[in-house]
Design a protein around this nucleic acid. Sequence first.
DNA 1: TACTTGACATTTT
DNA 2: AAAAATGCCAAGT
Length: 105
Amino acid sequence: MDAEEYAELVLRCVERVPAGRVTTYGSIAEAVGAVCGGGGPRQVGTVMSRHGGGMPWWRVVRADGSAPPTHALEARQAWLSEQTPLRPSGSVDLTRAFVAARLPD
DNA sequence: TACTTGACATTTT
DNA sequence: AAAAATGCCAAGT
């Protein structure tokens, strides 16, 4: 399993997340790690930073429901336009929006 | 081989 | 509640 394939799986998981819902780096790491072995939340983050362009990266959040500080503003706009359930604090309400990452069929 | 860097997570201050 | 310390895993230098 090379890094490219790992990235493919991660990206596919992101695409499977419906608008208005989110999943976490950790959840994706679990799903992909189950078949790829190894990997972890950080690897998922790395993949997003390199191949995140062109996909709904704002549907992937940290374990506490917040987006990476570097893209926090854009993420919030995207969440608002998709009507993603947010908490007063500005981060995503995981109890309402979280969906576990699923591997492609 | 050793050290640094990152769109992370968890525990402890 | 918020910040710091630790642990983590792979890739690049």
